[in-house]
Write a protein that binds this DNA or RNA. Structure first.
Lengths: 211, 211
DNA sequence: AAGTCGTTGTAACCTAGGTTACTGTTCAAT
DNA sequence: ATTGAACAGTAACCTAGGTTACAACGACTT
């Protein structure tokens, strides 16, 4: 498939690309589609060809928290967990926008670890990357107040969508940050007054990214 | 070395154990020794033979937070990051008690990925385990109040030390939880009244674990 | 035009937990 | 026995941020 090659040909050697093309099932999903649900079992590893995916955690009471985004060239480290054992997903993954995935059967994941240097590097680097992002999430929670977390959230969101304009309601933002709508409205007003964002109905602009 | 075999012979095949014995440098460290510091570069992977290690994060202002413990049979996933690239450590690792480590040169880490199935499993499972613990840390921070976090901390501490008695000051506990001494004293009093712990000077007993 | 629904602004209030300050206790050193 | 340092108890206070309530606004359907 042309898309796989376009995104992964700098990462993988030709033989591996050929194998991926052969066994991977490619699928395209609408925005806001749940790719993986908490408690779900899965036997394939998703490679993200285009689009982006939001990875969230949830507690018993249904409170949610955004962990990180996956983008082109990433894979879901949390899914690797499912593939290596018989464990169930601890996270929810949903598409942020229209997203194309290549699903690689779990068995191949292990075969390729032996065969291809580039695959080993890919898997290890992905784990590293995810650990770093988890650590970043922890530092955010532990060491920063809600205003700082909100601003960082808006910046990150602008970066994955490649746009200074964020089309979200205050309620949706509150949910990603495990906060409440009123608090987000309050802090957005403050960020607006401080000249960091401009906000309108259903739309927030991050000044830093306005061209 | 006899200790390596005793701890890892169920995990690794004999050939790999022999190789580890050959190249690993074994060292024993006092309690409260810093094994790895934030910003430090490292070119060897530590396998924990006995004892336990506390892994912490820190912000610019010096605030600290306990991430997780490493115990016998674990390795430091964050160190693997250093070994795979030229990255620097984002965490601090220090011994909780007298701890013996086998240091494996980074280069071997990659050779063994090709040669030994058991090594591949070991590395991947370790990454999985660490990701799970990071997720647990995030859930604790995001979804639980300080009283719950404190109680969980005490239980975890009792488990790694294999003792219902915890010899720590309130100040030390506060530091691990990124809180303050007064708050910990307040909450310990409450946990004591609720019959969950008994506390004395420099000593806390977790009722649940008292034989 | 009127009604409805999702969204936002804002005020009033509450609580967890951080901060400061002061007291008393234990224990080691002299 | 006296001093000093580390540790713990407690009160008084403050603030971030969560909660409830209500009004206003825009966008839509009828």
């Amino acid at each position: 498939m042309a898309e796989i090659e376009a995104q992964f040909n700098f990462l993988f050697e030709p033989e591996l690309l050929a194998e991926i093309n052969e066994v991977a099932e490619v699928g395209t999903f609408e925005a806001d589609t749940i790719i993986m649900e908490i408690g779900q079992r899965i036997d394939a590893l998703p490679l993200i060809i285009s689009g982006s995916i939001k990875v969230m955690s949830e507690d018993e009471k249904g409170n949610e928290l955004l962990l990180y985004y996956l983008e082109t060239g990433d894979t879901c480290a949390m899914t690797m967990q499912c593939c290596t054992g018989t464990k169930r997903s601890k996270i929810r993954a949903l598409t942020e926008e229209v997203t194309t995935l290549a699903m690689v059967p779990a068995q191949k994941l292990h075969e390729w670890m032996i065969k291809y240097q580039s695959w080993r590097s890919f898997i290890l680097e992905n784990y590293d990357h995810r650990l770093s992002e988890m650590l970043e999430a922890i530092d955010n929670l532990a060491f920063h107040n809600m205003e700082e977390r909100l601003y960082k959230y808006l910046r990150d969101k602008a970066m994955v969508t490649h746009s200074a304009e964020i089309k979200m309601t205050h309620y949706q933002i509150a949910n990603d940050l495990n906060s409440s709508r009123v608090v987000i409205s309050r802090l957005l007003k403050k960020l607006d007054q401080d000249g960091k964002v401009k906000h309108h109905r259903n739309l927030i602009e991050v000044c830093e990214f306005i061209k």
